[in-house]
């Protein structure tokens, strides 16, 4: 009814995509997001890009965090971005990538629509702060 009844909460999907089975990082970030007061949906392991897109669209998340340690990010991430675009969801979803992403690959991913990239050594506070500041403002 009135603006103060608005119970807006930042919703995130933490996704593991492809064959990479290392989910320690995804778990840690999911916990950190939860403790920051976000609603976190965890995809589980070995999701295909289509499944990640489906989850992101249906859950209407503000933030999609993709965790990749396998080196396949140049193939998988663009597929997910294209899928989001198909559902008109790319513009108002903040996509962040975490994992082992070589410096050389970053400009291209950012060009394609990735909002932020967090490699080893990035702190939880940094990630949480980035999401808070960059989560899309919706009406």
């Amino acid at each position: 009814m009135s603006a103060d009844a608005d119970q807006r909460t930042i919703r995130c999907l933490v996704a593991k995509v492809g064959l990479d089975g290392h989910d320690r990082g995804a778990h840690v970030i999911a916990r950190a997001f939860r403790d920051a007061g976000f609603e976190v949906i965890y995809s589980g392991l070995h999701r295909s890009p289509d499944e990640v897109v489906q989850a992101a669209v249906q859950e209407d998340v503000d933030v999609l965090g993709i965790s990749i340690l396998s080196g396949a990010h140049n193939t998988l991430v663009p597929k997910i971005l294209e899928g989001l675009d198909e559902y008109d969801a790319l513009d108002d979803t903040l996509v962040v990538v975490g994992g082992i992403i070589p410096e050389d690959d970053r400009p291209e991913l950012k060009e394609a629509g990735v909002g932020g990239i967090f490699g080893p050594g990035a702190s939880m506070e940094e990630a949480v702060e980035f999401v808070r500041e960059n989560a899309p403002q919706r009406d």
Binding site: R34, G37, V40, I41, Y42
Partner: peptide, 9 residues
Amino acid sequence: TGGSVLGDR
């Protein structure tokens, strides 16, 4: 915190 991990999916 109001946060949550939604795991049913």
